[in-house]
Amino acid sequence: MPLQSDAELLQAFRVPETRESAYTQLIRKYQERLYWHIRRLVVGHDDANDVLQNVLIRVWKGLDGFRSDSQLFTWLYRIATNECLTFLEQQKRRLSISLDQEGSAHLADRVRADQHFDADKAEWKLQLAIQELPEKQRLVFTLRYYDEMPYGEMSQVLETSEGALKASYHHAVKKVEDFLLNH
């Protein structure tokens, strides 16, 4: 079956006979974007997989209640972001990490532990720089720089004003720049 529009998929999802097929198409449509959004925040593939599966199960349970006030894509990102933050919070607690900075250090260690890590390559340095950012700035930076999300949509995902998001992004970009120049 060819990919359909979000509205058609939502309609098909509400019919018991086509529910599973519509859901399958929906996953296929958004799985990669959601995966990379999650992976950039939790770093490891296994963790990203766990979080993504939880997100998709939440989507299955909540899609009936989705009222199209926002775009489906924005709704999916909001669920994914919240699930990531919950996961990172649980991980911090499990590792007895209380401060934001220490949590970032732990994520930077995860980046270095990746089997393909190469400290000389710019893209890996950038990953380390991103993990040094405070949580909110990390989110804003990855949504803007990698997902190319407009501030208006990001404002719906993170429930923050566009002005605050722009300021966060600018701070994040400056911090990343400092990191790249000094490492």
């Binding site: 890590f117 950038l126 990953q127 720089y145 990343v176 720049e177």
Partner: peptide, 13 residues
Amino acid sequence: SPLSGQVPRMPYA
């Protein structure tokens, strides 16, 4: 920013 002009690439596999 030094990121200007660069194409975002994810090194993760």
